[in-house]
Design a protein around this nucleic acid. Structure first.
Lengths: 226, 226
DNA sequence: TAGATTGTTAATCGATTAACAATC
DNA sequence: TAGATTGTTAATCGATTAACAATC
C-alpha cells in the first residue's frame, strides 16, 4: 500500500463538500462524468483519486452518493469527534471557538482555552461557556482531558515556547495560525493556516491580471495604429 | 513570457517571510544552498523559482537579502497598500478587521464593514473604528472609495447574492471565508480560506499516523513471536 | 586568478489525462 | 443482452532535481 499523495488528500475535503451538497439535494447516484462537470475537474482524476482508497463505485452505475460521502468522511476522520483547546484567546481565537462550537455536528469542538492574560483567565467564551485558563494548566489539562488538537492563535514570538510545552503532552495535532513554520516530532501533525500568505497570493493575482490588461491594451493600440 | 505555475506562486510568500526574518537578523547575503538548509527545500528549486522572474542573484556571491526581499514583495504586490471591505461583521469578520488593522505596515487595511443586522449597523470595529454599514450601500461604497478587496465572512447561503452585487462593482478581488466555491468573472480574483478543509486534512493526518502505528506494533508483535 | 555560486539545460520523477478492457 | 461506467493500464504533461557551463 503506497502513500497517498498530498495532491489527492488536498482534494478530498472538496469532494466531501460536493457530495454533501448532492446528498442534501436528495441525489442518490452520480457518475464520475457528472461530478467532473459540477466540480470542474476531469472524470479521470476523480476515478484515480477514489481508487487510491479502493473501489467505491460500480461499473455501469457510477457512485452511490450516500456511501461515497460516508466513506470519504471516514477517510478524513470526520466520522468521530475531535476535542480541541485554544491557545491564545485573542480576537481570532475567540471567533474560532464561537464558530466551531456553534456547529457541533461537524465533530470539532473546543473544550477549553488558555491565555497568558490574567484579565481573561476565569472568563469564558461563547454560549457554551468554554473556560479560559492560565497557561500553567495547559499540559496537565491536555493529558487529563485527552485533547486531540491544539489550536495556536498566538503571536509568533510566543509560539516556540508553547510548542515545547505541547511536545511534552499527548496532543495529536496542532492547527497553527501563527505566522511561522513549526518544527515538531513526527507524532504530532501540523496544519498551517497562514492568512497573510493567502492574501499575498490574492494580491499577486491582482497584479498579474492588471499586467495582462495593460499588455492587451498596448497590443490593441499597436494593431489600431497599423 | 510563459505563465508562472501555481506551485511557484504558492511558495513565494514563504520565501518572502524567510527573507524578512534574515533581514531582521541583519544578514546581508544568502546563497541558494544556505536558504535551502533553512527552509528545508532543495537549492535547485530555489534557483528555478527565482529565475521565473529573472535573475536576482550573482554568480559566486549568492543573493542580496534586502534586494531579494524587496523584489519578491513587489512581485507579490505588497509594495503598495490594498484597501478592503468586510462583508459579514460576525465574530470571524470582526477578528480579521482588528487583526489586519493593527498592523497597517503590512499594507492591508479595512476601510468599512457591511452587515445585514440593523443591530450592528452604525457601530464600528476596533481601535480605528471601522464603521459598519447596511448592505444597500455596499456597491456604491466600493466604487466611490475605490476598494480593492472584498472579504467574505458570511454564511454560504448568503454568498451567491453578495457575489452578484460585487460583480456589478469595480472590486478587484474576493478573499473568501464562506465554505463554497465562488464562480466569478475572470477580472475578479478569488482566494479561498476553507478552514473546515484545513481541519479535515489535519484529522486525515492524525488517522494516517495512528494507522501506521498500529501496523508497526502488530509487525513488532509478530517478529517478537518468532 | 581561483573558488563560489548562479542561471540554465538535461534527466528524473510524479501527477494528470487518455484509453480501454472488465463488468455491472 | 446492450449500454453505461468503472477500475486500471498506458501516454502525456509538468514539476522537481541534478548537473554543469557561465561568470562574478
Amino acid at each position: 500500500m503506497r502513500e497517498i499523495s498530498q495532491a489527492v488528500i488536498g482534494r478530498l475535503p472538496r469532494y466531501y463538500r460536493y457530495l454533501g451538497d448532492l446528498q442534501q439535494e436528495g441525489i442518490e447516484r452520480v457518475s464520475s462524468r457528472e461530478l467532473s462537470h459540477i466540480m470542474g475537474v476531469t472524470a479521470s482524476q476523480i476515478r484515480q483519486d477514489f481508487n487510491n482508497f479502493g473501489g467505491f463505485g460500480q461499473q455501469g452505475y457510477g457512485y452511490n452518493v450516500d456511501h461515497l460521502h460516508t466513506e470519504i468522511g471516514r477517510i478524513l476522520g470526520v466520522d468521530h469527534e475531535h476535542s480541541m483547546v485554544l491557545i491564545g484567546a485573542g480576537n481570532l481565537g475567540q471567533a474560532l471557538v464561537k464558530y466551531m462550537n456553534s456547529r457541533r455536528d461537524r465533530g470539532f469542538y473546543f473544550k477549553a482555552a488558555f491565555d497568558i492574560s490574567p484579565k481573561l483567565q476565569g472568563k469564558s467564551i461563547g454560549e457554551d461557556e468554554v473556560p479560559i485558563y492560565a497557561m500553567d494548566n495547559l499540559a496537565g489539562y491536555i493529558d487529563s482531558a485527552g485533547i486531540d488538537i491544539a489550536v495556536l492563535t498566538i503571536p509568533k514570538t510566543a509560539a516556540l515556547d508553547i510548542v515545547e510545552v505541547l511536545e511534552g503532552t499527548q496532543i495529536k495535532a496542532i492547527w497553527n495560525f501563527a505566522h511561522l513554520d513549526l518544527k515538531v516530532p513526527e507524532r504530532i501533525q501540523v496544519e498551517n493556516v497562514h492568512l497573510q500568505d493567502s492574501l499575498m497570493k490574492l494580491t499577486y493575482s491582482i497584479g498579474e491580471y492588471e499586467k495582462r490588461q495593460e499588455t492587451e491594451q498596448s497590443t490593441a493600440k499597436k494593431s489600431r495604429r497599423k
